[in-house]
């Protein structure tokens, strides 16, 4: 094998290894390989307080991820926060009286939306709204109530 071919092969192998590494970063490390926003339907849920919920947070049902929070905005008419949830289209049997609540993974973990299925015959579809929701648990409020309760006990 001549020296020229050897050089060409080495440089070619270098380029190939570099592109394989880039491909690996795209498919294995980042979310490009797992993205499936195309086949999701959107529903909305109104919360009094969303706490620390952010877009892209998971939506779970019985602990299984069934969707993602796509968008969060403020409705200036009724002063509530509206979360747009993208539910993967294979989960199309969720009853429309489902209960949505904002939960926290662990004590300091990130917040996510948990769904509790209801018993209705009709199911959630694109554009449906979840009627019953429970706001995020804000730790300061809970502690404040607890201290207030203790103080009341002490006074009596």
């Amino acid at each position: 094998m001549s020296k020229t071919t050897q050089l060409e092969i080495l440089v070619g192998a270098f380029m190939a290894a570099g592109f394989v590494a880039l491909f690996f970063l795209a498919m294995q490390v980042s979310n490009l390989g797992t993205v499936n926003s195309g086949d999701a339907y959107r529903i909305t849920a109104r919360f009094d307080n969303i706490g620390g919920l952010k877009a892209k947070a998971p939506v779970t049902l019985a602990g299984v991820e069934v969707g993602r929070v796509l968008d969060i905005y403020f409705d200036s008419k009724d002063f509530r926060a509206v979360a747009v949830l993208g539910i993967y289209s294979q989960y199309n049997q969720i009853p429309d009286d489902t209960f949505a609540k904002i939960l926290t993974a662990g004590l300091l973990g990130e917040q996510y939306v948990g769904l509790d299925p209801g018993g209705s015959e009709s199911v959630l579809k694109e554009g449906s709204e979840i009627a019953v929701t429970q706001s995020a648990l804000v730790l300061e409020e809970v502690i404040g109530q607890f201290i207030y309760g203790k103080a009341q006990e002490g006074a009596n």
């Binding site: 270098f14 570099g18 592109f19 590494a21 690996f24 490390v29």
Partner: peptide
């Protein structure tokens, strides 16, 4: 041309 390829290799092997 080399730098991004080298950086991608570095990151991949680091992971």
């Amino acid at each position: 041309l080399s730098m991004p390829l080298l950086a991608a290799m570095f990151t991949t092997l680091g992971v």
